[in-house]
Amino acid sequence: MSIDPVIIVEHASKTFWVHARTDGTILSRMADFLPSGSKRHHSNCINAVQDVSFEVARGEVLGIVGRNASGKTTLLRLIAGILEPDSGTVKTRGKVTSLIELSVGLRHRLSVRDNICLACSMFGMSRSDIRDAFLNILEFAGVQQYVEMYPYQLSSGMNQRLAFSIAIHTKPEVLLLDEVFSAGDIYFQKKASKKMEELICSDVTVVMVSHSIERLKELSSHIIWMDQGQIQQRGDPTTVIAAYKSALTLPAQV
């Protein structure tokens, strides 16, 4: 049990039913009732997260590693409240800001200025807080001169920088980040890492999912290694990363 936990995940499970036939039409579902239909089309059950339990204390930085489709992003979505667990519970305390997909939340029909205002208000910031943070967001993202332009007129890197900048300026108590270390160029990545270190020194609780395992090792106080929807290992970054790396070692014949 952690002291003052702000994220409590207890026996959380999430299953997705994926239909083998992907065109998703009523006509195709009706075809399933034909004599040959049931053989051709079936549903796959994917246990994205299975009986996962852990707690994250206030100010702790939790890194999550794992191969593709190991349930990392689903777990982050459960914590963010985007998904509800099929069984078990996920509780958070305090204001949660999630950056699950970079550049998400940016509306292409709104200017950079309007996007900042909309995204900040969606993260629960007041009008005066948005006014105070506005210039800092622009400056951090390096898009001051593009404030009246639209996201589709900016590069994807600029959009990612802007989204990251908005997320870290929303004064979160719990920050959920999915693959943010790939945002922008090397200069911005260094700037983002520095900002992350500042956040970590403050009282913000951070949960980060990334394939940049060296960066996770540097920033995290604990690491969870996910595999096939389950926690394979949890512990201090050096031990878990070493175990994860050894599991990733390819057999000689591959």
Binding site: R77, A80, G81, I82, V96, S98, L99, I100, E101, V104, G105, M122
Partner: peptide, 9 residues
């Protein structure tokens, strides 16, 4: 879809 998949709205 991008909003629904990424934000708890």
């Amino acid at each position: 879809a991008d909003l629904i998949k990424a934000l708890p709205i």
